[in-house]
């Protein structure tokens, strides 16, 4: 059955704005067929059935419930991965980036998140940072023994 045109002539579309159509239908306009009255009864039922994720979302921090509650894991993985390059010692945030990134991937597979790409980015950044840190330690120990024991005495003089 085709949609009847709304009171202002625009084509009817099912949607939240339909609730605003309710008062005008108290007196149906000339071009509203009587089955327009069936929409108010039919709509709430389909509303409840059409958006189950909202009804089933677990209580959170008071945010509006979303279908992907564990998207935060991948964001933290990416942020920790980036931070491991902001800091010159990438090991301390690189390891958490990798751990949280793998947990984010698990959440994507469980259907609780949809940002697997971001999780992969965090994992890659984390592993590379760990690798660079380990390589730096190895190079320092092997090739520059004179530079090894200079913490505390290499700080440039501040003006």
């Amino acid at each position: 059955m085709t949609q009847p045109p709304g009171p202002d002539g625009s084509p009817e579309r099912p949607g939240p704005h339909r609730a605003e159509d309710q008062p005008p239908q108290g007196q149906p306009p000339q071009d509203q067929p009587p089955h327009g009255q069936a929409y108010p009864q039919g709509y709430p039922a389909s509303d409840a059935a059409g958006v189950p994720p909202y009804a089933a979302a677990p209580p959170g921090y008071g945010y509006a419930p979303t279908p992907y509650p564990r998207n935060d894991l991948a964001v933290w993985s990416l942020v920790l991965g980036i931070a491991s390059y902001v800091l010159s010692c990438g090991l301390f945030t690189g390891i958490p980036a990798v751990i949280v990134g793998y947990k984010a991937r698990g959440a994507v597979q469980a259907g609780e998140a949809n940002n697997g790409g971001m999780a992969t980015a965090g994992i890659i950044l984390g592993w590379v940072a760990i690798g660079l840190s380990v390589a730096a330690v190895v190079l320092l120990v092997l090739f520059v023994p004179a530079f090894l024991y200079t913490v505390g005495s290499t700080i440039p003089d501040q003006p």
Binding site: L87, S88, C89, L140, V151
Partner: peptide, 22 residues
């Protein structure tokens, strides 16, 4: 850490003199 000889030195500080946030 203030006395030299016990910890590794930071490569970034050593090579560039820049101080990272850590």
């Amino acid at each position: 850490p203030n006395s030299p000889g016990h910890y590794l030195t930071c490569p970034l500080l050593l090579l560039t003199g820049l101080e990272c946030p850590g």
